[in-house]
């Protein structure tokens, strides 16, 4: 069974439908990129997947023992206050709280999860540093570590490379790919970076105002739908 099955969902904002009759499936190990112009409903869809917004019709089903609260989530940078006094370890630890239930403090296994994820993302030596003093790429690693603490099988990333320099962008893509390939964590990424999506993802969901595409990357590149977008982006993808 698939991790997430969206069945003819309609998502509305202020009772105005943003996305209508959308269906797609995310299976274990998939790497789905959600592309689309501003206002096409990418972030709205993501809120739907995270359970922050209820579909007005249709259903989002979670399968394969995926619990909705165990989806790791990396929000857009702009959603986080930049001048917030918090250390790296405080931020990463806050990702574990969904596993505490009513118990107010982190258990030993959760502290180990925090350490493991900080090691994996190479931010262990930053753990006492202040989050606001880090570079953009380092901040994204911290937030990714937090998402991994919360995640079991799936992480959802909202424009993770926006505002990063090319080096940091490539590093982040590489990290996400490792997570996907080596640790078999499914990825849903909202992105503006069409080339990054084609080079990394396994599936593409492209939302336009009156049109949409859902399929594998191969189908996307060879199909009609993507032509105008790939040309705009220089057409350097075969």
């Amino acid at each position: 069974m698939a991790l997430i099955t969206c069945d003819n969902i309609t998502l509305s904002y202020d009772s105005r439908p943003i996305i209508s009759d959308l269906s797609f499936v995310v299976s274990q190990g998939d790497y789905l990129c959600i592309l689309g112009e501003n206002g096409a409903g990418k972030s709205t869809l993501m809120k739907g997947i995270l359970g922050l917004l209820k579909p007005t019709s249709g259903e989002i089903k979670y399968g394969d023992e995926l619990v909705q609260s165990e989806i790791g989530y990396l929000p857009q940078q702009s959603d986080i206050q930049r001048d917030f006094p918090a250390s790296v370890s405080e931020v990463v630890s806050s990702g574990c709280l969904n596993k505490c239930g009513i118990f107010p403090f982190l258990k030993k296994t959760q502290k180990e999860t925090v350490k493991k994820n900080m090691d994996f993302l190479g931010i262990t030596e930053l753990s006492h540093k202040c989050y606001q003093d880090l570079s953009g790429g380092q901040q994204q690693r911290v937030l990714l570590a937090r998402a991994l603490c919360a995640a079991g099988k799936l992480i959802v990333l909202d424009e993770p490379v926006a505002g990063l320099d090319p080096v940091a962008t490539n590093e982040l893509y590489a990290l996400i790919k490792t997570l996907n390939k080596k640790y078999n964590i499914s990825v849903i990424m909202v992105s503006h970076d069409i080339n990054g999506a084609i080079n990394n993802a396994t599936h593409i969901l492209h939302l336009e105002h009156n049109d949409m595409f859902y399929g594998t990357v191969k189908e996307y590149i060879t199909g009609e739908f993507s032509k105008k977008f790939l040309n705009i982006n220089g057409g350097n993808n075969k």
């Binding site: 619990v67 609260s69 165990e70 989806i71 986080i80 206050q81 918090a86 630890s93 806050s94 709280l97």
Partner: peptide, 22 residues
Amino acid sequence: NVFYNKIFAVTFDEEFARATGI
């Protein structure tokens, strides 16, 4: 003090906290 960790999480990033079931 009992809810310190959760209060931190909600204060730092309410959306994330809500998405992860707090």
